[in-house]
């Protein structure tokens, strides 16, 4: 019998171009023994929520560089909840001004990580969040 694996969806919502950061995080999580479902670029909130449901993930990581986090994160959390996945956690990697962080945390985002964040911290937080 296999032990329960942490399943993470890593998605890149919005229209901005590259997913280097998302891939780095995906690989780091894999190296920490997690199963990472990687969906690629230009995902709409609907696509992300649908993938999270089909894959029955524990947590969703969003890579957002466009500055649209205050629109995208609440929308995705809302869709997860509408699908019956209110227990699924959300974290954000990318460029988020400090002053937005409290509000994101308040709506249920478990972690916000800037370009300088260590992957160890992300891993530690995910393990804590999905406990």
């Amino acid at each position: 019998m296999t032990d329960k694996k942490i399943r993470v969806l890593v998605a890149k919502p919005g229209l901005d171009g590259h997913d280097r950061g998302a891939k780095v995080v995906a690989r780091a999580l894999r190296d920490a023994g997690m199963e990472v479902i990687y969906t690629g670029l230009r995902q709409t909130p609907e696509m992300i929520a649908e993938a999270a449901l089909q894959e029955d993930v524990d947590i969703v990581g969003l890579s957002i560089l466009s500055g649209a986090h205050m629109a995208l994160a609440p929308r995705i959390l809302e869709l997860l909840k509408a699908n019956g996945q209110s227990k699924v956690k959300v974290f954000i990697g990318g460029i988020v001004p400090d002053e937005d962080v409290p509000q994101l945390k308040q709506i249920g985002v478990t972690g916000v990580y800037g370009p300088g964040a260590s992957t160890e911290d992300i891993i530690k937080d995910i393990k804590e969040a999905v406990k």
Binding site: K5, E35, T39
Partner: peptide, 9 residues
Amino acid sequence: TGGAVLGDR
């Protein structure tokens, strides 16, 4: 590590 990146989607 037992982990995986599943990228087919």
